[in-house]
Design a protein around this nucleic acid. Structure first.
Length: 290
DNA sequence: AATAAGAGCAACCGCGGTACG
DNA sequence: CCGTACCGCGGTTGCTCTTAT
């Protein structure tokens, strides 16, 4: 009856992972590929349960993960997607391929919620006056949620954001980077489609590091999330290229469908509702969006 | 310099859906 | 078809680091 137990609960180690454990896990996955987590503790001798191994890999060791500060564009996307999808962190993460759901969730809980709250508190004053010239990211963030009456102002700020030096990618956790580097050879030779996607994302991102102001943005109105009503939407060019690559490689169906939600249809509707003509022109949407 | 409070984040827990035998 | 384990997800916890007093 049923499957055999994945791991013995007795003697399972908990708590932070050591570099040694990381290396063992990475080495094993390098050889066998991710998946079949049940066999990982058994075959590696790690005193961890399969779940813990999977979490460690997906949230920390997996190559292509971007760590550190979130850009204003990422913030915008998270806020917007959260308003659209709710706390579906995995779904939201599928739009930010370099960020893990855990990372996004943490960022939301520790940063963005506060910003939203702060914004709500100061909503009235913001509605009657433009953001200060020396606005911080936080102010920009708040301003994205302004009423429809302030669209011109929003556009201005979006442009400012695009040109902001803070838009550049942030630092990666060095330990992860080092481990990821170990995997570089494997990534290149791996026939695993998802690995190839990671690679594409990784390289694409490198090419676009100084080019992030090419993010295409527009704003729309959206009523949700504790009364916050307006947001922006940004669809980075690199995602579109990834989507295209997925489509052409046939990976799209498996990877995108499992990771990406109905949202594309929502997004589509959403895009076309308010600014139909403008948006189409601006977005140059890939097939998957149309 | 010592301590307390707060912030950030990695990891764990528990649940639901799915696959296996 | 049923029972059990696996897998993935969202919520929560607790440790560590930073900042304030």
């Amino acid at each position: 009856m049923g499957r055999p137990p994945c791991c013995d609960k007795i003697g399972i180690k908990k708590g932070p992972w050591t570099p040694e454990e990381d290396i063992v896990l990475v080495s094993y996955i390098q050889e066998h590929g991710p998946g079949n987590w049940r066999s990982v503790p058994t075959n590696t001798g790690l005193m961890r349960c399969s779940k813990s191994c999977r979490l460690r890999w997906t949230n920390y060791l997996r190559p292509g993960i971007k760590r550190g500060n979130f850009t204003p564009h990422e913030e915008g996307m998270i806020v917007h997607l959260q308003a659209l999808l709710g706390n579906k962190w995995a779904a939201i993460a599928s739009y930010l391929p370099q960020r893990t759901d855990n990372d996004i969730k943490n960022y939301w809980n520790t940063h963005l919620k506060k910003k939203l709250k702060k914004f709500q508190t100061g909503l009235d004053s913001h509605l009657t006056s433009p953001p200060p010239a020396d606005s911080t990211t936080c102010d920009h963030f708040s301003w994205h949620f302004m009423s429809d009456n302030n669209k011109q102002g929003s556009k201005l700020l979006l442009q400012q954001n695009h040109n902001s030096p803070n838009s550049s990618s942030s630092l990666y956790a060095s330990s992860t980077e080092n481990i990821s580097r170990l995997l570089e050879g494997w990534m290149r030779s791996s026939p695993n489609p998802s690995t190839k996607i990671n690679e594409m994302i990784f390289h694409e991102n490198q090419h676009n590091q100084d080019d992030q102001d090419l993010f295409i943005s527009c704003e729309t109105s959206l009523v949700q999330d504790e009364g916050i009503s307006n947001s922006i939407k940004t669809i980075p060019r690199e995602y579109k290229s990834v989507i295209s690559a997925c489509e052409s490689s046939g990976v799209a169906e498996k990877t995108m469908n499992t990771n990406t939600p109905p949202p594309f249809t929502y997004l589509e509707k959403w895009l076309l509702e308010e600014n139909a003509g403008q948006v189409e022109e601006l977005m140059g949407l890939p097939m998957i969006f149309t």
